[in-house]
Design a protein around this nucleic acid. Structure first.
Length: 876
RNA sequence: GCGAGAGUGGCGGAAUUGGUAGACGCGCUAGAUUUAGGAUCUAGUGUCCCGUGGCGUGGGGGUUCGAGUCCCCCCUCUCGCACCA
């Protein structure tokens, strides 16, 4: 790739303009406050970041995960949006038509809780928070197209979500069923499986309990295979996110086998991935909640079994699935028949069998499954070897642990001697022919439960009629508006259910009095398609203007936190495929590239008497309340509870947005955790002051200077450094997101500017150096760069000037320093002409006095010359 | 247990294909300037005896002229999943 295609604008004419605007002088002191408000106003007035589809430039859609409008931005937001803004500004300077929108994930519980606590209406609370956060975001100087902003609680947004739901209902992708769901008593609502972490609510960490309820579900399981297959094609995603999603989908190949129950006209279905071990099944284990469990219990065993069921029910889900739990069970008194050998095996209930995986029933093969093995030993059940590893002869009674490796089948009648992998197929085939089983694929993934028993969300647009049953709200009647006059007390279930006027509705089908659905959607539904709506936020003809959506989508780069690896990112992928299949969109996947940024961390500080302390409560290592020395704690994610937080607003007041951005980008690469450090912030502030002074000190000197193409001596070195820096920064930013090293490279260039002694003889090169610094840093610290660019005499925004290209010619040095090694150890350095012949290089290296010391009296066996780098003299 | 990633100065972090380990910043030391400064500038700063030099990227082995980087074994840490049948 060559460069220099974007040459610097003719300097003299622009200087005249600059003189007119600035009178040829500039403040010697950098005052961020003045600079930043000036340029923020300028961007707003000129609508600098507005985009539309009608452009000759290639499109680039950059998106950061939109925030929940809590009312205050935190450092995590600053980091996330600073990273995004670098990419947006960089791509724009590179000549892309960049869509960079922002909006609000505005439905959700905090608004409702605020209403319950303080009596403010969720809508008022939310929109006021949005207004305040918008102001805060604008202070960071982010280059959003604010014209596209929307909040998901806008009826103009959620009405289309309701329409998509109706279409999903038509296609059978949305359905209602009664089942055991995850109930969070604290949040007074149901949660999807993805939203339960270690048995606790992802939001409030309260323990989740099972509850039998009728709920709406989205058929994400229909897309399990596609979601899984595409996980292999998303090369722009971090491997760990894909791994988490694959894991969550949990596809496993196996066999469903039916075991008739002795003396009953019923069968128990089990799922197994090991049909090859079927002849080794010596008992069966059922989940205590299994629907057949109660019916299987003989009278004399009833008391014992009931006690066991009650005991398991008392255990919470965390313990139940911990793996540490002792395997326990109880015999039901009933027997099942192994379909392949007619053997009658006892049926147990076991605490480790989960109702929500597979069929809730397991054929137990103790010889070849560790859990069954432990269970069998405890209850003295037979252990029968059916797979023998090569060169070994296992004996069931002598086994110390289950054998799960490969081998040949034994004790398996007609399958004896078959290799076990092949036997999986053969036994499945055998069962299938006899109608006793079939090959199946089992998924861990469950359908997405989307009903929420809360007020502040999108109303689910259906009506319940005594005669007609579930009736969808006709499209023409959308939106089903969320009523504003509700009473929020936090008690007595969903507030909507108590709202008579909302609930009472005529059945759209028969006209009889009916009632509305009082549940609202999970707020993850809104965030599953907002990125598509940004393509056409004002479109009134449907959820998506297909043309606009197809122009912008997919999102080229998505940036956000890892905490959404499974929830939001899986739902958004699912929704994209649904929208595609509904004919609203033509893309398969929403996000081509994903960057998951690390957390913002800070050291914690604690006073023995006053507990955790905010940074401002500590002066000279002592607590401001009691003057006792403060204990330093671990570096942890910034959180209010540990008080190790930095308020972005205060930070910007003190140092300016550019410094806040610069530190967020410089202190660590984006995907790693960032450790906040006050002195590091000061260092960044100092660096900006250094650039400002470099321009101010030279502004008169370089006024009117042309950028030369041919220079020599020290000026040639500086010119080479300029172009090396352009190359380095371009390569670091473009696709690699190595912002920290890109900034370091510019710092080196600034250091070179300070060391440049012959500026007065070479004002043109000085100009080139300063202008390059400004252009390269613009994506990182745009306010100061816009200001300096104007001070340097340019009329238009530095973004218009574009991203600088490098000149390959300027990279070439006349001479090059080569390291001389003897046996791989550095013994000297020589400077030689770039085009020096190999013989000359070798000769020069051997002549070096210090090299001589290490090779005299030795035999030179070999000389390795790595052009431009080093010479290694091998001696013995 | 499975999966992903990491281990480099006092600290945050560099080293893109095997080629000068420690770029850049913080901190620290000294000097200059200043009424003073937590401002600015200059120089130094992995470690070991002063220096020529020796040692040094979690530990041990290997490949190579040459290894932070490649291969084998081991240790530690972080994150995710986990009685998944």
């Amino acid at each position: 790739m060559t460069s220099a295609d974007r040459s610097f604008p003719p300097v003299r004419t622009l200087i005249a303009v600059a003189d007119a605007r600035y009178g040829g002088s500039m403040d010697t002191q950098y005052i961020p406050k003045n600079v930043e408000s000036k340029w923020q106003n300028n961007w707003q007035e000129t609508q600098a970041f507005r985009v539309s589809e009608d452009s000759d430039k290639p499109k680039y859609y950059l998106l950061e995960m939109f925030p929940y409008p809590s009312g205050r931005i935190h450092m995590g937001h600053v980091r996330n949006y600073a990273i995004g803004d670098v990419v947006a500004r960089f791509k724009r300077m590179q000549g892309f038509n960049v869509l960079h929108p922002m909006g609000w994930d505005a439905f959700g519980m905090p608004a409702e809780n605020a209403a319950i606590e303080h009596g403010t209406h969720p809508a008022k609370w939310t929109y006021e928070n949005i207004a305040s956060m918008r102001t805060q975001l604008k202070r960071i100087g982010l280059s959003y197209d604010w014209e596209r902003e929307f909040a998901t609680c806008d009826a103009d947004y959620y009405r289309w979500e309701q329409l998509i739901f109706l279409k999903m209902l038509e296609k059978g992708l949305a359905y209602k069923k009664g089942s055991s769901v995850n109930w969070c008593e604290d949040c007074q609502t149901v949660l999807a499986n993805e939203q339960v972490e270690d048995g606790c609510c992802w939001r409030c960490h309260n323990e989740v309990e099972p509850k039998q309820l009728e709920q709406w579900f989205f058929k994400i399981t229909d897309y399990a295979d596609e979601l899984l297959d595409w996980a292999d094609k998303l090369s722009g995603w971090p491997e760990r996110v894909l791994a988490m999603q694959r894991n969550w989908i949990g596809k496993s190949y196996g066999c469903e086998i039916e075991f008739p129950i002795v003396n009953r006209d019923d069968k128990i279905k089990v799922f197994t991935t090991r049909p090859d071990t079927l002849f080794g099944a010596t008992f069966m284990s059922l989940a205590p909640e299994h629907p057949l469990a109660a019916g299987l219990v003989s009278d004399e065993r009833k008391a014992e079994v009931d006690a066991f069921i009650a005991e398991v029910a008392r255990q919470d889900k965390v313990d139940r699935t911990s793996g540490e739990l002792e395997k326990k069970g109880v015999f039901t008194g009933s027997y099942a028949v192994n379909p392949v050998n007619g053997e009658e095996i006892p049926i147990f209930l076991a605490n480790f069998v989960l109702m929500d995986y597979g069929t809730g029933a397991v054929m137990a093969v103790p010889a070849h499954d560790q859990r069954d093995f432990e269970f069998a030993r405890k209850y003295e059940l037979p252990i029968r070897i059916v797979i023998q590893p090569a060169g070994d002869a296992l004996v069931g009674s002598e086994l110390e642990e289950a054998y799960t490796g490969p081998g040949l089948l034994v004790n398996s009648s007609q399958f004896d001697g078959v290799e076990n992998e092949a036997a999986k197929e053969q036994i499945a085939e055998f069962l299938d022919q006899r109608g006793e089983g079939r090959k199946t694929i089992n998924y861990r993934l469950r359908d997405w439960g989307v009903s929420r028993q809360r007020y502040w969300g999108t109303p689910i647009p259906v009506v319940y009629c005594d005669s007609c049953g579930i009736v969808p709200v006709p499209e023409a009647d959308l939106p089903v508006l969320l009523p504003t006059d509700v009473e929020l007390t936090g008690e007595g279930g969903s507030p909507l259910a108590r709202h008579e006027e909302f609930m009472r509705v005529a059945c759209p089908k028969c006209g009889q009095q009916a009632r509305r659905e009082s549940d609202t959607f999970d707020t993850f539904v809104e965030s599953s398609w907002y990125f598509a709506r940004y393509a056409c936020p004002a479109y009134t003809g449907g959820p998506l203007d297909r043309e606009a959506a197809n122009y912008w989508l997919p999102v080229d780069q998505y940036i956000g936190g890892i905490e959404h690896a499974v929830m939001h990112l899986l739902y958004a992928r699912f929704y994209t495929k649904v929208l595609r299949d509904l004919g609203m969109l033509d893309v398969d996947e929403p996000f081509t590239n994903l960057l998951t940024q690390g957390m913002v961390c800070k050291e914690t500080q604690r006073c023995r008497e006053h507990g955790w302390l905010y940074p401002e409560e500590v002066v000279d290592g002592c607590c401001t309340h009691c003057s006792k020395p403060v204990e330093l704690g671990r570096t942890e994610k910034m959180s209010k509870s540990k008080k190790n937080v930095i308020d972005p607003n205060q930070l910007i007041d003190q140092f300016g947005a550019d410094t806040a951005r610069l530190f967020s980008l410089f202190a660590a690469p984006p995907e790693k955790d960032l450790e906040w450090n006050e002195q590091g912030v000061e260092g960044c502030s100092r660096f900006l002051g250094r650039i400002w002074r470099a321009v101010a000190d030279n502004i008169e000197l370089i006024s009117g200077a042309e950028i030369p193409t041919e220079v020599d001596g020290e000026a040639a070195d500086l010119k080479r450094k300029i172009h090396q820096t352009i190359k380095k920064v371009t390569e670091d930013v473009d696709g690699r997101f190595h912002f920290n090293t890109a900034i370091a490279a510019v710092m080196e260039l600034v250091n070179a500017i300070y060391s440049f002694k012959s500026a007065s003889e070479n004002p043109g090169v000085m100009r080139e150096a300063l202008e390059t610094v400004v252009r390269l840093l613009n994506p990182f610290v745009p306010h100061i760069c816009e200001e300096l660019w104007a001070q340097l005499g340019h009329e238009q925004s530095v973004e218009v000037a574009g991203w600088p290209g490098w000149d390959e010619e300027a990279l070439i040095a006349d001479s090059v320093t080569l390291v001389i090694q003897v046996n791989g150890k550095v013994r000297g350095k020589i400077s030689l002409a770039v085009d020096a012949a190999r013989e000359a290089i070798e000769a020069a290296a051997l002549k070096e006095p210090n090299v001589q010391r290490f090779i005299t009296d030795k035999q030179v066996r070999k000389i390795i010359v790595v052009p431009g780098r080093l010479i290694n003299i091998v001696v013995s």
